[in-house]
């Protein structure tokens, strides 16, 4: 018998379904809002280029939904890669310190550089990005000895630096004015409100490099499922691979956090959903989680914009409200499996 096994068909049909879900989510989110455009009318509006609907779509809705998709994709993909790297389904991009480092960078900028004004649009994301990368670099240096990196030590170093960054942010908060505090809070919760084509252009280079690099790690991540020694026996060059996985994840999360603040739980939930939907094979999981994360992020933003209209919720509030119960459910399931 020579045929592809059923699991391969399941993976492929899941990818196909998610590939259809994303454009559907994008159209839906682009259409719905204060100015309603029926999603099925969008292609026609785009072709005719005439009325007000076109202006709303091109200058407001599209940048926003594309940003939401890009941030969701980056977070979900790096989440999937880091879960594979740590061989732990509960790992999250926050673990290697990049999220809290970016938060610290942003807090330093908001509190210590008062009156930045126009500069803020570019300087704040840059500071967050640099903060995230520096923290990850520090975590990596702490965890390496003699050219090798112990994954467990990496995890512990990440926890330690997360705590340190949290403490420093707390110190800064105690010195912040009310206005700085509001700005910091809003940034911490994340949101796609400020999206313009410029935002997208600014994140494109690092975002695309990270996306391209991370998507190629499926095969070595599969080998790593058995353990580090076994991955080497299956032909994986371990140390360069681990360096790539962490550096590219930091790049992805740094880019996402710089553009949209701390949007929680997508990096954790999207890979899990794909595993439940199709299975754990990283060659399919990585593109699948990317597509799913993008769709989830777009839909969460749609809820954030419309739930309490005309006001707007930070998207991080929506993802955490939905993500936290899901995470607790996962923990309980995990607990049951361990107890068995």
């Amino acid at each position: 018998m020579i045929a592809l096994p059923r699991s391969v068909l399941r993976y492929r049909s899941a990818l196909l379904a998610l590939g259809l879900l994303l454009p559907a989510a994008l159209l839906l989110a682009a259409g719905i809002g204060a100015y309603y455009i029926p999603p099925w009318e969008i292609p026609r509006v785009l072709l005719e280029k005439a009325d007000q609907a076109y202006a709303v779509l091109v200058s407001i809705r599209f940048p926003r939904v594309v940003l939401a998709a890009a941030v969701g994709a980056l977070l979900a993909l790096s989440g999937a890669v880091l879960q594979g790297l740590f061989r732990n389904p509960l790992a999250d991009p926050g673990l290697i310190g990049v999220t809290s480092g970016a938060g610290l960078g942003a807090a330093i900028f908001i509190v210590l550089v008062p009156g930045a004004g126009a500069l803020q649009v570019f300087a704040l994301p840059l500071m967050a990005f640099v903060g995230g990368l520096l923290t990850t670099l520090l975590v990596w240096r702490l965890a390496s000895s003699g050219g090798r990196v112990q994954v467990l030590t990496l995890l512990l170093a990440g926890i330690a630096l997360n705590a340190a960054a949290g403490a420093l942010i707390g110190l800064l908060i105690s010195r912040a004015t009310d206005e700085q505090l509001r700005s910091l809070t809003f940034w911490t919760l994340g949101g796609y409100g400020g999206a313009t084509w410029t935002t997208l252009l600014a994140m494109a280079p690092t975002g695309l490099v990270a996306l391209w690099g991370l998507l190629r790690l499926g095969r070595p991540l599969n080998a790593l499922v058995l353990g580090e020694r076994e991955a080497f026996h299956l032909g994986v060059n371990l140390e360069p691979f681990k360096r790539q996985a962490v550096a590219l994840s930091a790049l992805a999360v740094g880019t996402a956090v710089a553009a949209a603040g701390g949007v929680g739980f997508i990096g954790l939930v999207a890979p899990h959903l794909f595993r439940l939907l199709a299975g754990p094979d990283h060659r399919y999981l990585l593109p699948g989680a990317t597509l799913l994360g993008a769709s989830l992020s777009v839909l969460a933003d749609l809820v954030a914009r419309t739930a309490v209209a005309p006001a707007e919720l930070p998207v991080g509030v929506v993802t955490s409200l939905l993500g936290a119960p899901f995470f607790i459910w996962l923990l309980l399931r995990h607990k049951r499996e361990v107890a068995r």
Partner: peptide
Amino acid sequence: RREVGFPFSAYE
């Protein structure tokens, strides 16, 4: 070592 990080099937 007999430890697999994720719920891979035996076939996988």
